Amino acid sequence: MMENSSVPPAPQGAAKPAAGSATRRHLVLATSTLAVLALVLDQFTKRIVETSMYEGQVIDVFPPLLRWYFIKNSGAAFSMGEGVTWIFTIIQAAVLLYVAIFLVRKVRVWSWALALGGLMGGVAGNLTDRLFRPPSFGHGHVVDFIALPNFAIFNVADMFIVCSMVVICLLLFTGREFDGSRSGSKNKPGTEPGTDTQEMP
């Protein structure tokens, strides 16, 4: 004899939204943590350079491959645009806000989360210099100190920016979307986000 249960069965997939939201929280936390770590590491190393070296000083670390060379850069990479520091301040602030507000909330995979976190931290590191270092607010000079042969002098923030942009370019080149799917796979029937489809020849 069958017994009737007064408790209706739970709908299938009821736990998926909770699991998905938990994953999103973890990704946002990872992105934010990496951004903060990049910012702190960048500012910490710059503080060490400012307190232990004088501007223009060169210290050999692993000659001739690596030297510390303390300079203050008012422009962009390779000292371009030194007379328009305020433009770089606006650009960096716009990039940071755009990534934080519009892109991070779309991320569903670790690769994009870490790439955006590194980018945010690097941009925030140099933006902090622009805003709060001499000669004035918004016109501050960025501290650079890592020198390689026949290359620009850069800092930790630049390292995070470059590495993150390499990863982002690879993700875009391979068609990886923010949710983990590949470009075009969303229009194919039976394709789940985050899964790849293989077409038979």
Score class of each variant (00 low, 15 high):
residue 92 Q to T: 05
residue 49 V to S: 00
residue 75 G to L: 01
residue 148 L to G: 04
residue 155 N to R: 03
residue 86 W to F: 14
residue 45 T to A: 14
residue 2 M to A: 12
residue 88 F to Y: 14
residue 142 V to P: 08
residue 33 T to E: 03
residue 189 P to K: 10
residue 82 E to W: 08
residue 181 S to N: 08
residue 84 V to T: 11
residue 21 S to M: 07
residue 146 I to A: 01
residue 72 K to M: 02
residue 139 H to P: 00
residue 138 G to R: 02
residue 60 D to V: 00
residue 30 A to S: 14
residue 183 S to Q: 03
residue 20 G to N: 14
residue 12 Q to F: 12
residue 22 A to P: 05
residue 141 H to M: 00
residue 70 F to L: 09
residue 105 R to W: 13
residue 157 A to S: 13
residue 151 F to H: 08
residue 5 S to E: 08
residue 144 D to A: 10
residue 16 K to E: 14
residue 98 Y to H: 12
residue 173 F to H: 08
residue 97 L to N: 04
residue 19 A to K: 11
residue 197 T to H: 05
residue 20 G to T: 11
residue 44 F to K: 02
residue 116 L to H: 06
residue 147 A to H: 15
residue 149 P to V: 07
residue 24 R to L: 03
residue 119 L to Q: 06
residue 164 S to W: 04
residue 29 L to Y: 11
residue 120 M to I: 08
residue 38 A to N: 04
residue 120 M to E: 04
residue 149 P to K: 04
residue 34 L to Y: 12
residue 191 T to W: 11
residue 200 M to H: 15
residue 50 E to F: 07
residue 113 A to Y: 01
residue 36 V to D: 06
residue 91 I to D: 08
residue 6 S to T: 11
residue 194 G to F: 08
residue 11 P to A: 12
residue 63 P to S: 01
residue 85 T to Q: 07
residue 29 L to D: 10
residue 125 G to Q: 04
residue 173 F to I: 13
residue 83 G to L: 01
residue 22 A to L: 14
residue 114 L to D: 06
residue 78 F to V: 05
residue 155 N to P: 05
residue 140 G to F: 07
residue 54 Y to I: 06
residue 40 V to I: 14
residue 189 P to T: 09
residue 40 V to C: 12
residue 184 G to I: 03
residue 106 K to H: 12
residue 31 T to D: 05
residue 65 L to T: 08
residue 191 T to M: 10
residue 128 T to E: 07
residue 59 I to F: 03
residue 132 F to R: 01
residue 77 A to M: 01
residue 54 Y to W: 10
residue 32 S to P: 00
residue 174 T to D: 03
residue 133 R to Q: 10
residue 53 M to C: 09
residue 85 T to D: 00
residue 80 M to N: 12
residue 137 F to A: 04
residue 29 L to S: 13
residue 8 P to G: 07
residue 128 T to Y: 15
residue 10 A to W: 02
residue 98 Y to T: 12
residue 166 V to W: 09
residue 74 S to H: 15
residue 19 A to C: 06
residue 6 S to A: 13
residue 63 P to K: 09
residue 20 G to P: 00
residue 157 A to Y: 06
residue 52 S to V: 04
residue 179 D to Y: 06
residue 91 I to M: 10
residue 29 L to I: 08
residue 110 W to N: 05
residue 146 I to H: 09
residue 132 F to H: 06
residue 62 F to M: 09
residue 19 A to T: 11
residue 8 P to Y: 10
residue 10 A to P: 03
residue 80 M to H: 09
residue 193 P to R: 02
residue 80 M to W: 13
residue 164 S to D: 05
residue 195 T to N: 12
residue 175 G to H: 04
residue 162 V to T: 14
residue 168 I to F: 07
residue 93 A to G: 11
residue 103 L to P: 07
residue 32 S to H: 05
residue 145 F to M: 08
residue 160 F to W: 15
residue 178 F to N: 04
residue 1 M to N: 13
residue 116 L to Y: 12
residue 62 F to Y: 11
residue 54 Y to H: 15
residue 182 R to Y: 15
residue 177 E to F: 03
residue 200 M to S: 15
residue 121 G to A: 05
residue 107 V to G: 09
residue 59 I to W: 08
residue 2 M to L: 10
residue 49 V to F: 04
residue 200 M to K: 14
residue 107 V to K: 02
residue 129 D to Q: 01
residue 5 S to Q: 13
residue 52 S to M: 05
residue 170 L to Q: 07
residue 21 S to C: 00
residue 103 L to C: 06
residue 115 A to M: 00
